[in-house]
C-alpha cells in the first residue's frame, strides 16, 4: 500500500510500487484528466507536477512520487498561474480535440512559474515534449504569451 498526496489529499493506493503514476491516477484514483498518449515519455500527454516540477507520469513509478506533492490537471486551476493559463486557453480557443491539452497546460503552467516572461525559445524548449496531433501549436504559443501578459498576441 502506497500513500500519495494528490491535489492536496492523501490517497492510499493498493497497487504494486512499480506501477506508473499515470495508471494509478487514471485507473485507481479515477483522475482521468491525465492522459495516456505513448507510455514511453515521448508525447507529454501524461504530464503532472511533482513538487512543482513537470513530470511524465507514464514513466514515474508511484514509489518515486511518495512524499511529493502531486498536482494534476484537475487541480491546476486552483493555482493562480494555472488558472491564468486555462483562461488564456479558453479565450484563444486553443483546444481542438482537447486530448493533449491537459499535458500542454501542465507544461505551460510549469514554464510560467519558472519563467514569468518566456521568450519564444523558452516556449519551444518547455513545450516541445508535448505533441498535439490536431496542430494547435500556434495558439498554444499565443495563449502562453497572453497568460504571461506579453503583448502582440496574434492568432
Amino acid at each position: 500500500m502506497t500513500t500519495l498526496t494528490i491535489n492536496d489529499k492523501p490517497i492510499k493506493i493498493d497497487l504494486p510500487a512499480d506501477t506508473p503514476l499515470l495508471w494509478a491516477l487514471r485507473d485507481f484514483v479515477g483522475l482521468t484528466g491525465t492522459k495516456f498518449g505513448c507510455g514511453i515519455a515521448s508525447c507529454g500527454a501524461c504530464k503532472v507536477h511533482l513538487d512543482g516540477v513537470p513530470t511524465l507520469s507514464c514513466v514515474t513509478p508511484i514509489s518515486a512520487a511518495v512524499g511529493k506533492k502531486i498536482v494534476t490537471i484537475e487541480a491546476i486551476g486552483q493555482d493562480e498561474i494555472g488558472k491564468k493559463v486555462q483562461d488564456a486557453w479558453m479565450s484563444l480557443g486553443v483546444p481542438q480535440c482537447g486530448y493533449c491539452q491537459s499535458g500542454q497546460i501542465m507544461a505551460a503552467t510549469a514554464l510560467l512559474k519558472q519563467t514569468p516572461k518566456p521568450t519564444d525559445a523558452d516556449i519551444d524548449k518547455a513545450m516541445s515534449g508535448n505533441i498535439c496531433r490536431c496542430g494547435t501549436y500556434c495558439r498554444i504559443r499565443a495563449a502562453i504569451k497572453q497568460a504571461a501578459g506579453i503583448s502582440e498576441v496574434t492568432v
Partner: peptide
C-alpha cells in the same frame, strides 16, 4: 466542451 477540456473533466 472547452472548459471541460482545459480542466481535465472532458470524457
Amino acid at each position: 466542451d472547452g472548459q471541460d477540456m482545459v480542466t481535465g473533466r472532458a470524457q
